[in-house]
Every structure is written in structure tokens, then in C-alpha cells.
Design a protein around this nucleic acid. Structure first.
Ligand code: SF4
Ligand code: SF4
Lengths: 133, 133
DNA sequence: ATTAAATACGACTAAAATAATCGGATATGC
DNA sequence: GCATATCCGATTATTTTAGTCGTATTTAAT
């Protein structure tokens, strides 16, 4: 309950790892996976998602890997979560959510406010805040 | 990811329902379950947990049910979560967590700060805040 | 050219967490 | 005594998350 996913953790670990290297160094998935004992394939797919969304840049072929494409100051946690997991929703109140309680629910509004508070918290947290400290 | 559980939702819905009744009225699980289309057995067990922790008072036997035992102003969301789901942890960093990354993890501290921020948010949110609006 | 090392990606399987149900016990008002 | 409730452990079902597999493609080095 209220847990982050491993995928998200792996992404943060990887971003911090990449940031710790020389700016132009190309870091391979393997290097990150071995350093931090992350399952290689899972990390690979995660990094591919980040590359597709222009957070990191992929260099293919032998001696390929990734390097940062944006400054981590300019990306917030909410954006990262959005990329990897979709929008934050502490519960599922959308129209197509087929929640049987939907139209008779007596806690929907306050719960939505809580959700917004969490979203806003992650909005105000840059990846640099996390990868720097 | 970052979702509340149904059990917790059901508890909130039930507490709000009970609060909406006359102060001394005894409300049965069945009444709440039918009004809000919540699975009876699951709600029953949830309310039992709340009763055990003195948030509501159980009246057994025919015409039994529950009524509030504490003012909802004096209970915060964090306490409710603690009762129903245990401590909030957006990830599992305890000593016995057998996370293989534990001793080489480069995001542990910042993640713990995020966790504390969430806990503190739920600490400052009373059940009355949720059941009233 | 061939090989080795890397990303790219869809499909699949495994594991864990959550949600719901079942079966019975106990209590109590009428 | 019976109907209606709470109580509660055990089990099953469902959903979500985590991880793996197989294969294709790219590219540097030889
Ligand atoms: S808050 Fe109410 S409507 Fe929204 S998902 Fe929970 S029960 Fe359904
Ligand atoms: S933050 Fe690091 S140590 Fe904590 S659970 Fe996640 S990976 Fe493991």
C-alpha cells in the first residue's frame, strides 16, 4: 500500500548513477545493473522508456549506453512517475473505473484532495533533489 | 502504485456513514454494506479491526452494530492506516527487508525523506477532515 | 566480412499483494 | 428458541508487480 514500484526505484538509482559519472561518459545498462544488483533486463526496459521520453539519450551498438539528455533540475518526480507508471491515483475514481461505489461514494471529494496534495508534492520535487543528496 | 487499499476506503466510507447518523444510533455492518455496496464480510472484518483499536464501539447480538467511540477530530489518517495496513513505507528499507540493494543503494536517504513527508501529511489530516467535507 | 557488445521490444512466466469468500463460533434482544 | 448480529481464522480468487526469454537491430573493432 502506498508503495513505489521497483521499476521507479531502478530508474532513480540509474539516473543517480549516470549523474555521478563524467558528463560525456556513456554508461551501459550492464554497468549500472552490476553496480547496483538490478536485474539487467528489467533495468534495460526501464531505461528504454526514459530514453523514449528524452530524459536520457541512447547510443546504440558496441560501447553504447546512455547519457543524460536533460538536466535533472528540470525534471520533477511527477513527470518520471507519469512516464513509468502513469498518473498518480491513490484510488481509481475515473469514469471508466467501474468502481461500483462511484455514484454513491461519500469520500470521493476528500480523497481526491489528498491525491492532489500528493501530486503537488511530487511536482515540487525535482530529480536533482533526489539524486544529489 | 501509490494506491490506497479498498479496506482503507471501506473504513473511511463506513466511518463517514456512522458519523452521519444520530449520535447514539447503532449502525449495523449490513446497513453500511448495502448502502454503499461494500462486500459484507470484508467490511465486517475491517470494522472489527477498528473496534479492537477503540475507534468504534461494538454492540453484539441482535440489533447490534457499531457507534463511534472517539471523536474523529482526534484520530488522524496515519493512525487509521497504521491500524489497517501497518506503517507507511513507500519502499521497504528496513533491516530485515532483504532488499539486495540495501547496502549499496544510492537513493535510500532521499527516498526516506519523501516517505517522511507523506507520513507527516497523513499525520496532519484528521478523519474528521475527510468525513466532514 | 565477421564478431562481439550493446540497445530495442514484444511476449511470456513468476511472485507477491490485495480482495473477497467460507465456515463456523459466540452473543443477545425478542 | 430463534433471528440477527458481531467475531475470527482459513482459504480462494483476482490483480498488480517483478522478472525472464527470445529475437531483432545497431555499431565499433578486428
Ligand atoms: S473514492 Fe469512492 S468512488 Fe473513488 S474509487 Fe474509492 S470508493 Fe470508488
Ligand atoms: S531505497 Fe534502496 S535500499 Fe531502500 S528498498 Fe529501495 S533499493 Fe532497497
Amino acid at each position: 500500500m502506498l508503495k513505489l514500484t521497483r521499476k521507479l526505484e531502478y530508474a532513480l538509482i540509474a539516473l543517480r548513477h549516470i549523474q555521478g559519472q563524467a558528463t560525456e561518459k556513456i554508461v551501459s545498462t550492464k554497468e549500472i545493473a552490476e553496480t547496483h544488483r538490478i536485474p539487467l533486463q528489467l533495468l534495460a526496459k526501464t531505461l528504454q522508456q526514459l530514453a523514449k521520453h528524452n530524459i536520457i539519450e541512447a547510443i546504440q551498438g558496441a560501447h553504447g549506453g546512455y547519457r543524460l539528455k536533460k538536466s535533472l533540475d528540470n525534471i520533477n518526480m511527477n513527470a518520471l512517475i507519469q512516464i513509468l507508471e502513469g498518473p498518480i491515483g491513490i484510488m481509481d475514481c475515473s469514469a471508466d473505473s467501474n468502481c461500483v461505489q462511484l455514484d454513491i461514494c461519500n469520500i470521493r471529494k476528500p480523497i481526491n484532495r489528498v491525491n492532489e496534495a500528493i501530486v503537488s508534492m511530487f511536482d515540487n520535487l525535482t530529480l536533482a533533489d533526489i539524486t544529489r543528496h
